[in-house]
Simulated assay, not measured.
Amino acid sequence: MENTYFITGYSGFLSGQLLDEIVATNNVHKLYLLVHPTMLQKAKQQFAIDGLFNNQWEFIPGDITEEGLGLSKELRHNLQRSVTHVFHLAAIYDLSVKEKVAHQVNVVGTRNVNRFVEGVHSLKRYTYFSTAFVSGDREGAIFETELIRDQQFKNHYERSKYEAEVLALETKQNVPTTIIRPGIVRGHSKTGVTTKFDGVYFYLNMLERFRQLRLRSVPLIVKGSVNGNFVPVDYVVQAAVYLSHHEKGIGKTYHLTDPHPYTMEEVYTMLSEAYLHKTPKKTLLSRFAGRSLNAVLERYFRVSSEALSYHEIDATCDSSQAVRDLSGSGITCPDFKETLAPMASYYKDHRQDQLKYIT
């Protein structure tokens, strides 16, 4: 049976990969892509690059921060009569975002999308993309069935995504909803392709600077037993699309995180060995690893201070529900170690591309 999709957040990296997966694995009748008017030209250019398909798509200029998504009443009602699946990915992903902007886009925007969803006549599924970091400063095991636990937040991004997920939980009482909580998304596990050198790539930024400095030894500046929370984009989109079309996914929240994570020290060590072919060692610089080194890392190694705080929260996202419901699908999160070669190779080939760096 053919499905009609309404998707927010194009032309982000995750949404582009999601479209590929939907088209490859489902019978698509029509795909409506809600794009902010200021991003329309960029979206069209990106769409041409992606080369997904020809006459089954339509860009819908709109704004999730506006009531009714900035759409005419007639268009909105026409969409609500035809759409079967809604994927809401549009959000501000910026750890240093200002409070007002984060609230307007991530919270108010989600509220407006929820209202649109509740008016869809033949809705089969509403999939809301949250983040594993709605857990804030909680430590220990974080379960998929948990959300409101009096946690505090490290930045306005986290808080706004938490408040948005609370709204998605309320919507779940009225419509078939699936909530996806990805970890820190990295490039494709097989090709290494990514659009931004953020997240785990901050380590590669550091290692590249060490290479430029011609250091004889790579300093071990990441220490401790805190787990990394990095997950390849192909696993996220494959799992999300599968769970969003299977009945078992209705009413559930999924951690799409690495079920067998390595510690941050292990991740750093493996990347150093893959990229520089050197095992990090304790040096004079290693003594200053921690908060006192943050300013240096931020200025000289393109590591944001907000990102560094994620190396200090000892939390593990339990993904038992996701692993169980994906059982039999053939979709599993690849071992981080097995994806190192394409990640390091892609970074090496594109390290001069300034558009891939957070500024």
Rank of each mutant, 00 (worst) to 15 (best):
T283E: 05
S292F: 14
K281E: 13
S292H: 10
P232Y: 03
R287H: 14
P261K: 02
Y268I: 03
E266C: 02
Y242K: 14
Q238M: 06
R287T: 12
N294Y: 15
E247K: 15
K281P: 03
L276W: 10
K252T: 01
V296Y: 03
S292P: 05
V241D: 11
S292V: 13
R291Q: 15
E265M: 10
E266K: 14
H246A: 09
Y275G: 04
R299T: 14
T279A: 07
Y242E: 09
Y235F: 15
S286H: 11
A289T: 13
L293D: 02
L297V: 14
L285H: 00
Y262T: 10
L271C: 04
V236R: 01
V236T: 05
H260S: 14
P261R: 01
L284R: 10
G290N: 00
L276N: 04
G249R: 01
E273V: 12
F288G: 02
Y268M: 05
L276F: 08
P280H: 03
D258I: 06
Y262C: 04
V241C: 05
R302N: 15
K282I: 15
L284I: 15
S244W: 06
G290H: 03
A274V: 13
A289L: 11
L256D: 08
H246D: 13
T279W: 01
R287A: 08
D234Y: 00
T263G: 10
V241Y: 13
E273C: 06
L293E: 04
Y275M: 04
E265Q: 15
T269Y: 08
E298M: 12
E266R: 07
P261M: 02
L293F: 12
T269S: 10
A240T: 09
H255S: 07
K248H: 01
L284G: 02
G290C: 07
R299A: 11
L271D: 04
L271W: 11
Y275A: 09
L285V: 12
K248Y: 05
M264G: 05
G249K: 02
T269H: 05
Y254V: 02
T257N: 12
K281F: 00
S286L: 07
V233L: 00
L284S: 11
V233Q: 12
L293R: 01
A239T: 02
H245W: 02
L276E: 04
